[in-house]
Design a protein around this nucleic acid. Structure first.
Length: 885
RNA sequence: GGGCGUGUAGUUUAGUGGUAGAACGCUUCCUUCACACGGAAGAGGUCGCAGGUUCGAUCCCUGCCGCGCCCACCA
C-alpha cells in the first residue's frame, strides 16, 4: 500500500476530501445541550462582495487555530461565520458593474437598484465563503449570518430605536465629511489624511471705502466664494484698528466683517484668516461663536452653486457657476490675478482628507445627519478595558485604544446610500416618528438614508446569536471569548463592538482582543491592486495547499505583532515542511508494514536513551505549544512544532530508528516502531490546529493501519489534545542524549575537515566521568564508524589519529596514513585559542567578587561549571598537542 | 505637534541581563531504500550610534540618527 503513496505531498485532493467530510459530518457544529464549556469566536465578517486576501487568510488561520485547539482541549467550540453588506463598498461595486452594461443606478431607481444588489449578492456572495472553506476554516456554516438578514436587520433597527429613546441619538445640521463620488457623508475615521504638495494663495481683501486691504492666505481659494468674515487674533496689533470694519470680498463684492477670535494664530500666514463657515470645520465653529451666515457654495457632486447667493453677488462671476470644484479653483485664481487681488503664491504642503473607499478628496459639507452621542458609551467601553474585563494582546494596544476612545467625537451614522439598513424614522410635515415598525396613517415618508455599515457590525457578537431575542445560542455562547483582527479596524469595529456590547448586553463581548499585524509584500509595502503586488491566497492554496499557506503566515507572527512580510521563500519553506511531514509519515507507515499492524502502547521498561529522549522532547512540545497558544503566541508555537518535527524527530530520532527497524531483532523493531508511532501520532494532534488537512490525512492513514477503526465517526478533530505526562519529561535523559548528539556532530565535522569518507574507523572514546555506553551504538551508526571502544582511561595513545573533545569526553579517530600530523596540530591549536579566549573571559568574571556575591547563584554555578569544563578540555587538548609535536 | 512600533549574518528575521538562533542564499561533500520540496559539514554577526544603570547589556534607562505607522481643527 505504501508504494502507492506518492513521494511528494499533493494537497489539492486531500484538502477537498477532508473539508467535505468535516462539513458533511457537522464536525464544526458545537454539541447541543453540552456539558462542555463553550468557547466562541465570531468571524470578523468579510465584505459579501469581497475576495479572500492575505489579511483574511492570516486572520482566519489564527481563529481556526484557536477553535480547533479548544475543541481538542474539550471545549464546546463555536466559530460563527458570516458576511457584511458593506454599504459603500458593495454599492460602488454594483454601480460600477451597471455602468459597464451602460446603466446608471439613478435611472434604475432605488428599489430596482437595491434588487440588483441583492441579485449580485446571491451570485457572488458565496465567493468569500467558498474561499474560507478552501483555507480550512472550521466555521459552523449552519449558523452563517449576513448583516442584512432579517434577524440582523431587526437587531439594527432595535439598536437605533433603543438608543434614540434613551436620548443617545440626535439629528443635526453640521459639517460632515462629504464624498462627492460616493455621494454620501462618511464618519471622521473614514477619512484618510495624507500630506500633499499644494499652494498657499495670498489674496487681498479691500477694506470698505478705503485704499487699504487685508491679505489672507488659503489653501483652498475657491472657498472664498462662501466667505462671511475674516478673523484676526484679538491681540494682534497689526489688525487692532481694523476689527469691526467691513471688507469687500473680491469678485463677489459681498460685505464681510473683520472679527476677532482666539483661534487665529498671528504667526501663521498673514495672521488674518478668511472664514468660510459652510466649508471648513474651524470656520464653522467660529461662525457659531460669531453668528455668521453660512453660505454653501457646492452641490452634492462638488460643483459650484450660487443657490444661496444674493443676486448682486453673482454678477461678476457667473461663468463659475456649475464648474467642478478644482476647475473653479483654477479659474478663480486667474480672475483674482487679473483683477489684482492676488498678492502671491507659495508652495505649501498640507494634509488632504480622502475617502477611505474611493480616495476622492473629501469636502467639509453642511447637511442634516444622524449622530450617536458617544461620550457615555465610550466611558463604559473604556472602563471595561481599564477594569481588565477586556484584554488587548499585545498589550500596547490598550493605551492606544484608551487614548482614542477618550477623544472620540460623536458618530455620524447616516449615509446617503441606497444599500444598507434604512433608518427607521418617518416624517410627515413637521412630525417625526421613530419606531421599529412603520407608523400607521397616511402621508408618512421614511428617511431616505441608511446606516453606516459599522453601526450594524457593532452588534455582530450578539446579533449573530439571535439578539434582541433571548435565544438559547445567545445564552450559551455570549460573551464570546477571543476577537482576532488586524489593528486597522480597532477604531472602526472593535471599539464600537465594545461600546454596544457593554451598553446592550452589560457584558464585554469578548475577554481578549488579539491584534495581529498586517500582511505586506516583500518590501513591506501594503498589498494592493494598484501596486500590483498582491499575492492571492487562493492561488497559493492551489499551488502548495492551505496547510502550507497557513503555516507560512502563522509562523511569521511575532510576539509584538509586527506586520508580516510575505515572500515566496516563506511559502516555499512551509511547502517543504508539509512535504517533510508527509514523508516522515510515509516512513513510519512503510516501517509498519507488513506485519506490525497491531502495535500496543509503549513499554517504558524497554526504552533506550534516544527513545526516552524523543518522548521527553515530545511531552515538552505538547506542554509548550499548549502554553503558547493560550498566551496567543501563535508564531512561536508554530516554530516550536517545526523545530521538533524536523530538527528533533526527523533529523535525529528517525535516523537513529533505522538501525532497529532494519534489524532482525523483532522486539527491538517493535519497540522502536511503537515509539515512532506514539511520537508522530501525538505530534499530528499538536499540529492539527495549524495544519488541519495534512494532519487529518496522515493521522487517518496511520490509525487505519493500526486497525483501530470502529463504526464510529473518526476524525482527528474528535481526538484529544495530547496529555502531558510529566514523569516522561526527563532533563537528565535530554542532557545525556545531547552529549551523544554533540559527539556525533564533532566526529562528522572532523571527518569532513580531514576529507575522510571511509566508514572503516575504529573510534576510541575516553570518558573518565560519564557512562556513555548507552549512546555508543548510536554514535556508531550516525557518525559512521565501524567500531567503538569506550574507555575510562586511555590505554595507549594512538599516534596517527585526529582528536576531538566534547565537554569532558575525548575521542580519537585513528586514521593511518590519512591524518597529516601538522594539520591536526594546527587544528587543535586553533581550538585551543578559542578556548583560551572564552576562558579568560570566564576567569575574569568568576574572580569578580561582585559577580560571585550578587549574581543569581544559579548563574554563577553555570559559569563555574562551564569554566571547569573548558579547563579540562584545555588540558586534554594541550596534552594531545604535546604528544603530537 | 503628540503617540506607537522598529533598526540583529548578504537577504528576511526569532530571541535572551551572562560573548547570539533560524530560514533563504553561499562554499564543500552526498542521487545511502521517508523526503533532492532531501541529508552532512562549513563560512558569515563589535545585535543602528553615543552616553547611563549594572560585577556584566544586544536585551533595562536617556539622547541622537534611520525606517514605518497611528492620532491631531492650524488657514
Amino acid at each position: 500500500m505504501s508504494n502507492e503513496i506518492p513521494k511528494v505531498y499533493n494537497p489539492t485532493e486531500v484538502e477537498q476530501k477532508w473539508y467535505k467530510f468535516w462539513e458533511e459530518n457537522k464536525l464544526f457544529t458545537p454539541e447541543e445541550n453540552s456539558s462542555k464549556k463553550p468557547f466562541t469566536i465570531v468571524i470578523p465578517p468579510p465584505n459579501v462582495t469581497g475576495n479572500l486576501h492575505m489579511g483574511h487568510a492570516l486572520d482566519n488561520s489564527i481563529q481556526d487555530v484557536l477553535i480547533r485547539y479548544k475543541k481538542l482541549k474539550g471545549f464546546n467550540a463555536l466559530w460563527v461565520p458570516g458576511t457584511d453588506h458593506a454599504g459603500i463598498a458593495t454599492q460602488n461595486v454594483v454601480a460600477k458593474a451597471l455602468k459597464k452594461e451602460g446603466e446608471r443606478k439613478e435611472d434604475l431607481g432605488r428599489e430596482n437598484f437595491v434588487e440588483r444588489v441583492w441579485k449580485w449578492k446571491e451570485e457572488y456572495g458565496g465567493n468569500i465563503t467558498r474561499q474560507l472553506r478552501r483555507l480550512g476554516a472550521s466555521l459552523d456554516w449552519t449558523r452563517e449570518r449576513f448583516t442584512m438578514d432579517e434577524g440582523l436587520s431587526k437587531a439594527v433597527t432595535h439598536e437605533f430605536v433603543a438608543l434614540y429613546n434613551e436620548g443617545l441619538i440626535y439629528r443635526g445640521k453640521r459639517l460632515i465629511n462629504w464624498c462627492a463620488k460616493c455621494g454620501t457623508a462618511i464618519s471622521d475615521i473614514e477619512v484618510e489624511h495624507e500630506m500633499k504638495k499644494g499652494n498657499l494663495w495670498y489674496i487681498k481683501y479691500p477694506v470698505e471705502s478705503t485704499k487699504v486691504s487685508v491679505t489672507v492666505a488659503t489653501t483652498r481659494p475657491e472657498t472664498m466664494l462662501g466667505d462671511t468674515a475674516v478673523a484676526v487674533n484679538p491681540k494682534d496689533k497689526r489688525y487692532k484698528k481694523l476689527i469691526g470694519k467691513m471688507l469687500v470680498l473680491p469678485l463677489v463684492n459681498r460685505k464681510i466683517p473683520i472679527i476677532k477670535d482666539d483661534f487665529v494664530d498671528p504667526k501663521f500666514g498673514t495672521g488674518a484668516v478668511k472664514v468660510t463657515p459652510a466649508h471648513d470645520p474651524n470656520d464653522f465653529e467660529m461662525g457659531e461663536r460669531h453668528e455668521l451666515p453660512r453660505i454653501n457654495i457646492l452641490t452634492k457632486d462638488a460643483k459650484i452653486t450660487f443657490e444661496e447667493f444674493a443676486d448682486e453677488d453673482k454678477q461678476e462671476i457667473s461663468e463659475i457657476e456649475g464648474m467642478d470644484r478644482f476647475k473653479a479653483r483654477q479659474r478663480i485664481v486667474e480672475l483674482l490675478e487679473e483683477k489684482g487681488f492676488l498678492e502671491k503664491i507659495e508652495d505649501y504642503e498640507t494634509s488632504i482628507g480622502e475617502c477611505y473607499r474611493c480616495k476622492t478628496v473629501i469636502e467639509p459639507y453642511l447637511s442634516d445627519q444622524w449622530y450617536v452621542k458617544v461620550k457615555e458609551l465610550a466611558r463604559k467601553a473604556i472602563k471595561a478595558v481599564e477594569d481588565g474585563k477586556i484584554k488587548y494582546v499585545p498589550n500596547r494596544w490598550t493605551k492606544i485604544y484608551i487614548n482614542w476612545m477618550t477623544n472620540l467625537r460623536d458618530w455620524c451614522i447616516s449615509r446617503q446610500l441606497w444599500w444598507g439598513h434604512r433608518i427607521p424614522v418617518w416624517y410627515r410635515g413637521d412630525e417625526i416618528y421613530v419606531g421599529e415598525e412603520p407608523p400607521k396613517g397616511d402621508g408618512w415618508e421614511q428617511d431616505p438614508d441608511v446606516f453606516d455599515t459599522w453601526f450594524s457590525s457593532a452588534l455582530w457578537p450578539f446579533s449573530t446569536l439571535g439578539w434582541p431575542e433571548k435565544t438559547k445560542d445567545l445564552q450559551t455562547f455570549y460573551p464570546t471569548d477571543v476577537l482576532v483582527t488586524g489593528y486597522d479596524i480597532i477604531t472602526f469595529w472593535v471599539s464600537r463592538m465594545i461600546m454596544m456590547g457593554m451598553h446592550f448586553m452589560k457584558k464585554a463581548p469578548f475577554h481578549t482582543v488579539f491584534i495581529h499585524g498586517l500582511v505586506r509584500d516583500a518590501k513591506g509595502k501594503k498589498m494592493s491592486k494598484s501596486f500590483g503586488n498582491v499575492i492571492d491566497p487562493i492561488e497559493i492554496i492551489d499551488k502548495v495547499g492551505a496547510d502550507a499557506l497557513r503555516f507560512a503566515l502563522i509562523s511569521l507572527i511575532t510576539g509584538q505583532g509586527q506586520d508580516i512580510k510575505l515572500t515566496p521563500d516563506k511559502i516555499t519553506e512551509a511547502r517543504n515542511f508539509t512535504n517533510k511531514i508527509w514523508n516522515v509519515a510515509r516512513f513510519v507507515l512503510m516501517a509498519m508494514e507488513p506485519e506490525a499492524k497491531s502495535l500496543g502502547s509503549i513499554d517504558p521498561d524497554r526504552l533506550e536513551l534516544p527513545d526516552k529522549w524523543i518522548i521527553s522532547r515530545n511531552q515538552n512540545l505538547a506542554a509548550e505549544v499548549d502554553k503558547l497558544i493560550d498566551g496567543c503566541d501563535f508564531g512561536e508555537a508554530a516554530r516550536k512544532i517545526y523545530d521538533f518535527l524536523w530538527g528533533d524527530f526527523c533529523d535525529w530520532y528517525v535516523e537513529i530508528s533505522k538501525k532497529d527497524l532494519y534489524s532482525e531483532d523483532k522486539t527491538k523493531k517493535e519497540k522502536t516502531l511503537s515509539v515512532l508511532l506514539y511520537v508522530l501520532e501525538r505530534t499530528l494532534r499538536v499540529m492539527h490546529p495549524f495544519m488541519p488537512f495534512i494532519s487529518e490525512e496522515t493521522w487517518q492513514i496511520l490509525t487505519n493501519n493500526l486497525q483501530l477503526t470502529t463504526n464510529n465517526l473518526k476524525s482527528i478533530i474528535l481526538s484529544k489534545w495530547p496529555k502531558v505526562d510529566n514523569s516522561l519529561i526527563d532533563e537528565k535523559t535530554e542532557k545525556s542524549f545531547n552529549l551523544v548528539k554533540e559527539l556525533i556532530v564533532k566526529i562528522r565535522n572532523i571527518k569532513a575537515e580531514m576529507g575522510v569518507q571511509t566508514k572503516d574507523i575504529e573510534l576510541i572514546i575516553v570518558s573518565p566521568k560519564r557512562d556513555i555506553d548507552a549512546g555508543a551504538q548510536f554514535i556508531k551508526s550516525l557518525a559512521k564508524v565501524s567500531s567503538i571502544s569506550v574507555q575510562k582511561v586511555l590505554k595507549s595513545k594512538p599516534e596517527q589519529s585526529a582528536t576531538g573533545v566534547v565537554h569532558d569526553v575525548q575521542f580519537f579517530i585513528p586514521l593511518k596514513g590519512l591524518v597529516d600530523i601538522e594539520k591536526e596540530v594546527e587544528r587543535l591549536k586553533k581550538e585551543d585559542e578559542k578556548i583560551d579566549k572564552e576562558l579568560s573571559h570566564l576567569n575574569k568574571l568568576l574572580s569578580n567578587k561582585n559577580f560571585v556575591d550578587k549574581a543569581d547563584p544559579v548563574a554563577v554555578e553555570r559559569q563555574r561549571s562551564r569554566q571547569k569544563e573548558l579547563a579540562e578540555k584545555k588540558t586534554i587538548i594541550a596534552a594531545r598537542i604535546k604528544d603530537l609535536s
